[in-house]
Design a protein around this nucleic acid. Sequence first.
DNA 1: TAAATTAGAACGAACGTTCGTTCTAATCAC
DNA 2: GTGATTAGAACGAACGTTCGTTCTAATTTA
Lengths: 195, 195
Amino acid sequence: MSVAALQQEDTRTLVLGAALRLFTEKGYFNTSVHDIGRTAGVSIGSIYHHFGDKEGLARTLYAALTARMQHLIDGVVRREGSSHDQARELVARLFAWAEAEPREMAFLLYARHREFLPNEPPVCASRPFAMMREMITRGIARGEIRQMDVMVASASLFGGPIRMITSRLDGILPQPLPGYLDEVWDCAWRAVATA
Amino acid sequence: MSVAALQQEDTRTLVLGAALRLFTEKGYFNTSVHDIGRTAGVSIGSIYHHFGDKEGLARTLYAALTARMQHLIDGVVRREGSSHDQARELVARLFAWAEAEPREMAFLLYARHREFLPNEPPVCASRPFAMMREMITRGIARGEIRQMDVMVASASLFGGPIRMITSRLDGILPQPLPGYLDEVWDCAWRAVATA
DNA sequence: TAAATTAGAACGAACGTTCGTTCTAATCAC
DNA sequence: GTGATTAGAACGAACGTTCGTTCTAATTTA
């Protein structure tokens, strides 16, 4: 990669980082493109050169983060093992990610994307959530999870863990998430497990 | 109440209704005060006379809805009975409310209030959520709920039901919420119940 | 008539966006 | 190897629009 291309990548990274920070701290609509440029140390023109418009910037950020989430889930599903082990591993990784990159998780879970990305489907309808439901379906087929409505099972198994993540992001959980993992997972699994 | 006072109440109600509708449909920042006035059939001046500014309007709406939520919870807590019965009744009422007034529930659960009401505490830190935690604490003391971290128990018991509500609001649940109540509650209670 | 309320035109600040220019570094000509 | 040429990245002042808010005149109420 040429020196120019490297600098170009730097600029994009700088801008995306500033946008993520400002969007999660102040919200999309309370953040101006001028703010982002100032925070990133990059000119307005540059931003428009790279991302087209403000919405394009948000879309790029959103795409990058959902891709990362997708990658995380793929890594879990690829591993062999029971549905129980897969789902637990998924929760463990989500906890770790939320702790390491709270802003990224906040942007994914919290931001009302529909308000500024009108053409994106709602988060719940996206691949990641669909794969969680597939995990459930497999678990029911294997007899690990009780026979029940898939949406109910999905909400019951992941609702608690996700709620823990949002509580942590809101600052009302004193300890890092991984410390709660065992107890949280115990509850979550009891909710849907057979026997 | 005089005729004037009645008309005044009408105006306020009209404006609040229009604001609720537009805020939930398009989001707070995509809704202009002019939009609200046009939808409500009321002048700009009227709105500023009654609510001070756009934020005041949002604050009034938020206060009215949290008061209603508070009232709903009070009604549940006042009834005597086990923690199990109280919590189940709470979920049942939340389901019914979400089905009857989806916009009100959406505004309470979804809207990123921090972005447009900077001085309000986050929803999770509000009275309603605190009372849910109290319900849990009592349940533990009575031996109905297993000994565990209160935050974990709260997330585990109510995380599933709340997730069902947001799914329904997102339109990815085909049936009305009350139809899922038995199955959802069964899962939720298993998550935290003793024995 | 005096006070309270409403109407909507007008205002000013802030925002997203555009565009002409400068700067940089790679490529080409000889 | 040196100077000319070119591509496109970065820049930021300026523009047009939108939005929240104010103001004043008209209307209604008591």
